[in-house]
């Protein structure tokens, strides 16, 4: 066990955990931020996507000991009032079916748009490849992303 100081959604937290604990479980079990989802544990589904600084990472494979002083953003902190353009677009397109994967989808898409505000269809598909949706909402996800792409 070791104490780690974390910057999550602009707030400072201290957690005393096994250094190998993935950020996913630190967020869910220790910080009670459960918007970040567990789906596979091996970085194959994208449900656990968070931002480390501005980059999308799979929190299920990110040990807390490797975070250092980088900023962590989760779906709860993506916007102050739940009104990030992608969150609004997701509602406008009524994207979710079961909804379980959608926080990861939004976080992944948000990082894409931050790095590349004007992606092509192919770039969107490539960037979103790692995010599974078992309900099959892919066409709506793409439409929602495209609706906020600056053209």
């Amino acid at each position: 066990m070791a104490v780690f100081t974390l910057n999550v959604n602009g707030k400072r937290y201290e957690v005393d955990v096994d250094p190998a604990t993935p950020m996913l479980w630190v967020l869910r079990d220790h910080l009670n931020l459960v918007g970040t989802k567990y789906g596979c544990g091996i970085a194959q589904c994208g449900a656990c996507t968070i931002h480390l600084d501005d980059v999308a990472v799979r929190s299920c494979m990110l040990p807390v000991s490797q975070v250092g002083n980088r900023r962590i953003t989760t779906i709860e902190g993506l916007s102050a009032n739940g009104d990030h353009p992608l969150q609004r677009a997701w509602l406008e397109h009524d994207v979710p079916q079961c909804g379980y994967c959608q926080a990861g989808q939004i976080m992944n898409a948000a990082a894409l748009l931050k790095a590349n505000p004007n992606p092509t269809d192919e770039e969107i598909e490539a960037a979103m490849h790692g995010n599974l949706c078992r309900c099959g909402t892919y066409t709506r996800i793409k439409a929602a992303i495209k609706s906020v792409v600056k053209g």
Binding site: G35, I75, E76, L78, W90, P96
Partner: peptide
């Protein structure tokens, strides 16, 4: 629209695992 839409896109606790 989905009545849980806002909660889903903001990551509020909704699911069994939550």
């Amino acid at each position: 629209k989905n009545v849980d839409g806002q909660k889903i896109v903001t990551g509020q606790p909704l699911f069994g695992l939550d």
